[in-house]
Design a protein around this nucleic acid. Sequence first.
DNA 1: AAATTAATCAACCGCCAGGCG
DNA 2: ACGCCTGGCGGTTGATTAATT
Length: 281
Amino acid sequence: MPMNCRKCEKKSKVNNCRKGLWSPEEDEKLKSCINKHGLGNWSCIPAKAGLQRNGKSCRLRWLNYLRPGLNHDTFSSQEVETIVKLQSLLGNKWSLIAKHLLGRTDNEVKNYWNSNLRNKIMKGGESLKSPFSSSKLPQCTSQFSFSACLESMEPSTKEPTQPERGVEESAAKGGRSQQLSFPKILFTDWISMEHPEGQNPMQADEGMSSNWACSMSSTDVSWLELLQASYMPSDEDLIREFGVGEFRSHFNHGETVFDAVSGVETSNGFQMSQGPFVFNN
DNA sequence: AAATTAATCAACCGCCAGGCG
DNA sequence: ACGCCTGGCGGTTGATTAATT
């Protein structure tokens, strides 16, 4: 991480930083500044852009609102489904969850959860609480054990999900609408189905090359247990579970990020830093 | 139509991890 | 090793809008 520019930093401290909603003029200044200078040290951006904001505010505005490729449409039923599933698995890891929803920010997901889903889940009991029965769902903490989870799961009793039917409808009916195979959603974080150039990196002699380094956050260490479980979902499993368009896992290939399911180049990369991994199967 | 309440969401705050001098 | 700094994250606030009374 580069150190900050002292000159810019001093300037920004002297400035009386504006707070509150951003005006269109401010947005324009920030956009043109980033277009001109690129993304660098956020503490330097306000001075360069002529904004009386602090760098943190600029960063937030850019990431949550101005950044290209953001999707500000209402959440689709499949996106909602993904949020519910991931929240039940990962807890309030909004940035992680957002990485699985193209064009969505952590803030957006978090807001949606807090305003739309949380209360419904409280009211709706099991229907929205989790894809798994509460008695079988281990808490998702850093101590979370996938082995324990796998052992506690009943073997493949799920029915195919119906993504077009929103979770709201499911909640209204008051029953569990989905019974999912637990580990799949997690595997897709780091298992690539197809190499964009036709080569499956899982079959590479050297395991995963540095270009295909997979991502695991520090809190995901126990995910390694999944590897030891020798369980690998098929393409069909993943697509049936989440739909090609909605659930995506991303892998870095050099400078370009590809969607693991569709192979389509995307701009919303799930940066993965820790690899390679050895697969047992 | 006005007042009140609820819902939404952009933005802020504080904390933490990690890099650098 | 230590302190300072940035970037990143999750929790929270508060202004605005919509719905209800």
